[in-house]
Design a protein around this nucleic acid. Structure first.
Lengths: 230, 230
DNA sequence: CTCGGGTCAATACAGTGTATCGACGCGAGA
DNA sequence: TCTCGCGTCGATACACTGTATTGACCCGAG
């Protein structure tokens, strides 16, 4: 049998692993949001059939868990934080920055327990920064409170960002009255306090708003760390 | 033509309105979570075809907006709050309670601007409680900070609740080590601070954990209200 | 050289959101 | 009273989703 008669050996499938899968999914989400991530599209990016993925994940939620853990690697602190305040504040700031790079992160944050390796490492490093500063219970409470704050804040910020983008309005216009509908509602006089806030409030950018709230919460933690728990 | 020959007049379609649609959607979500809400199923509950809904909403997200506004009605304060602290704290507590009644609320909270009538009324009443207590800017910052806190906290709590339920583990077991996987990870010794926290931390129920963090944040707000802004 | 096992993908299925379109009942005008 | 147009409703259709099943096919062991 000559070469010409023998068929070309079938192209072996591209080797796959979770890393590659997650990378493809993250890329897809960065481009089109979480809803753009479908098993078919992820597989297509890897020149594979959709069913191939089920060797590495067993459900689509698994993929989201992996994606969350993946970006949490970006949030890990560079070097050991100097003090607890820097550790907690840094965690909040770095999470926010990651969420601005990957807006879909806001949808996942707090929505599922983060028990992947990076998620655990993140909790570990945060708790470690509070070691020796207080008792375990207060430390846990502190981490929970700060985490709750920045999860909520990031969520709100990203939601506002998207709404603004979807409305096509400028930054300023949107922040002022949140589109024609709210402007109209305010004009009815049924929401005087809200109207005053919108008209008299000075516009602050999201970054400083986030930072301000964060400082408040960190101050609250500091107040509890100073005295022993009641 | 006798009666027998004339066909029965066609059953006129059930009159529909947004209220009915939203009620059906909320009921569906209460039973099976947000993902159980499909336009087909909502319509089926109302003895209507799916397309019928498009006269009242123009997209599925619209339906979510309406659902969010609907439950926000449950969060509206009964009577005018005594002081700002009661107003902000009450808002947080009532939101949490609503989220425990409607777990799907956690998925929506903070995910979209709440500009429906009840959402606006909620913001109005909250801002009104701060009227005269501080300047507009500080009031806005206070509302944002507290809102961020409880949105994040509720999200975390509901997520934990669901994970626990899905794992089939008991309350205690789960809270202790979050399932076999984390137990194994902790045993490796790579997460000493986390391990200490899990083993030495006293278990607190979600309600008091929420309340504690809330008090901290409210204290932080109080501290800023006392002195004029820097 | 053959056969068994395991891997991969094609097919299938039930379900989704939404666009299109055809039929049909009702109200207005003759 | 008849008719016509309009507007409303739902059947159908489409592109897509996550996932179960199944069948083909390659590799390595006997």
């Amino acid at each position: 049998m000559t070469v010409w008669e023998r068929p070309e050996p079938p192209t072996r499938p591209v080797p796959l692993d979770r890393e590659r899968i997650v990378a493809a999914a993250v890329a897809l989400a960065d481009e089109g949001g979480l809803e753009a991530v479908s098993l078919r599209k992820v597989a297509a990016r890897l020149n594979a059939g959709p069913m191939r993925l089920y060797g590495f994940i067993s459900t689509k939620d698994d993929l989201f868990d992996l994606m969350l853990d993946e970006v949490q690697a970006e949030i890990l602190p560079g070097e050991r934080a100097e003090d607890w305040r820097e550790a907690l504040g840094g965690l909040a700031r770095r999470t926010r920055e990651a969420a601005l790079r990957h807006e879909w992160l806001a949808e996942l944050l707090g929505g599922r327990p983060a028990l992947g390796p990076n998620g655990l490492a993140l909790t570990e490093s945060t708790l470690a920064a509070l070691d020796g500063v207080t008792d375990v219970d207060t430390a846990l409470r502190a981490v929970e409170t700060v985490s709750s704050y920045f999860i909520g804040a990031i969520r709100r910020e990203v939601a506002a960002l998207r709404a603004e983008r979807a409305s096509g309005l400028s930054d300023r216009e949107w922040q002022r009255a949140r589109g024609p509908h709210v402007t109209r509602e305010l004009a009815t006089g049924r929401f005087p306090a809200l109207a005053r806030a919108v008209h008299e409030g000075s516009e602050v950018d999201a970054a400083t708003s986030f930072a301000t709230g964060l400082e408040w919460v960190l101050d609250a933690v500091a107040a509890r760390l100073d005295r022993p728990p009641a």
